[in-house]
Design a binder for these strands. Structure first.
Lengths: 251, 251
DNA sequence: ATAACTTTTGGTAAAAATGACATTAAGTAT
DNA sequence: ATACTTAATGTCATTTTTACCAAAAGTTAT
């Protein structure tokens, strides 16, 4: 195919790559710090929570912040995200996904630090966070009552929430916030909390069940003061099958 | 509200933030280079194209690559993205959006460089790229015939394409690839190229027009060997209104 | 045991959206 | 004037969505 090609002579040489890279002093460029901040969403009793730490070190000592820290120069970023979250909160092996990079020149008082935000969803009951390293405390804070956070973490959190809502609408990630076994009403309450909407109970049930992503267990709720609902579990295998066939979950 | 709070004593101090930040030698951490890579999509004659450069400097001299370069330590990343694209290709003032960060330890032979990918959509006819700085050439390459790219740029491009298709489906970004005035058939051809699908002409028309996002001009196509179609333009104001009311574009 | 109560669960009917396709309209080319 | 091409509009059957009802199944109180 003929392409539209525009090929002009070099006009000016001003980049660090204009001469062979190994002859240049990179000092001028290689002065960045890189960090990771983790936005961990949890869900408990119909409320969406965020995992925050109370900072035990400068800068912003004593303030609320997302769990985050600097990446080592020989460490991959995703690995760092896991390590840092584990070091500060004890939580391990989460599925984490990037949301955005934050790189304002003055966002960190100690120098030029650009940070990558990762988000994750967990069932609060399945993990037991505890403060360690320089974290003075680890808390599940209600999303509705969020204090001001250190650095630009308030902005990071706000953006991550938008990403979460996007994801939740188009992929069945919501299931990750629920216990293994759950009732349809639980799932509905979760989605209503996540997206602040309300759904008709009967129609929600039909929609979800028609996707065939749930396995009906031979087991009912216990200790409820009314008719107990049937319990279900998420059919991960069926989901992977559908995805590979180009299925797209929509709520 | 009572929160589930877990607050344990410090167990170990091992982070760089465990002592006041101004007393620490950060040298160990502040060794990163940060770069930006731009994935600029263009559209011309029913084909999706990518703006690539032929590298005129090491590393990967002579190879195809996304326009990208290192960020200055006192420069905001978005500003750098604009500058670098302008320096290398002469294209200015694009609306660019982040897609992802790439940070593998060995992704750059000159040292630890993490890069942020930005993507943008432009109407090829509206811009006239020309190689400058250390770019030896600038080319619009057809997406279907993409060569192997320098660094991890092939992966970056692949991911950006997925993001583009997502965005195009849920926001009317497609309009940015068309000239000011266009016929409905042009819009349809664009979406069909972007998403490799085909739509029924009559139904596509109804769907698009029912969104009220197009302004019908009192003007028709010229120089077509058949009945000329009515021209439309995108109603940006109406779009912003709808968005602020929580409207979501779906195709 | 029975009645009252609450929530689950299955169903139906109207309304809305979708999709396939036919028809008419409006221009160009001969 | 006629043929031809694509635009533009309309119709209709089908599917999907939505609102709502009622029976079923358990718990609790009497």
């Amino acid at each position: 195919m003929a392409e539209k090609t525009i090929d002009r002579p070099l006009t000016e040489v001003k980049s660090q790559f204009a001469v062979p890279y190994y002859e240049i002093s990179y000092d001028k460029f290689f002065q960045f710090g890189v960090s990771v901040d983790c936005v961990v969403f949890g869900y408990h009793e119909n409320r969406l929570k965020i995992l925050l730490i109370k900072r035990g070190a400068e800068p912003y000592k004593g303030m609320w912040a997302l769990p985050g820290d600097l990446v080592y120069p020989n460490e991959n970023i995703e690995v760092a995200a896991q390590r840092i979250l584990r070091d500060l909160t004890g939580i391990e092996d989460l599925y984490m996904e990037q949301t955005k990079v934050y790189g304002k020149v003055d966002r960190h008082p100690a120098g030029r630090v650009i940070t990558t935000a990762y988000y994750s969803l967990i069932d609060i009951a399945k993990h037991d966070p505890h403060a360690s390293a320089w974290a003075e405390g680890v808390y599940w804070l209600d999303l509705a009552e969020m204090p001001k956070l250190a650095f630009d973490h308030s902005e990071i959190l706000k953006d991550a929430l938008v990403v979460l809502q996007q994801r939740v609408r188009h992929q069945p990630v919501g299931f990750e916030l629920l216990p293994e076994k759950f009732a349809l009403a639980d799932l509905q309450a979760l989605y209503e909390a996540l997206l602040n909407e309300t759904y008709d109970k009967a129609n929600f049930r039909k929609r979800i069940l028609s996707m065939n992503l749930l396995i009906s267990l031979k087991e009912n709720q216990k200790d409820v003061p009314h008719r107990p609902a049937r319990l279900y579990k998420f059919d991960k295998q069926r989901y992977d099958e559908l995805i590979s066939k180009g299925f797209s979950f929509e709520l």
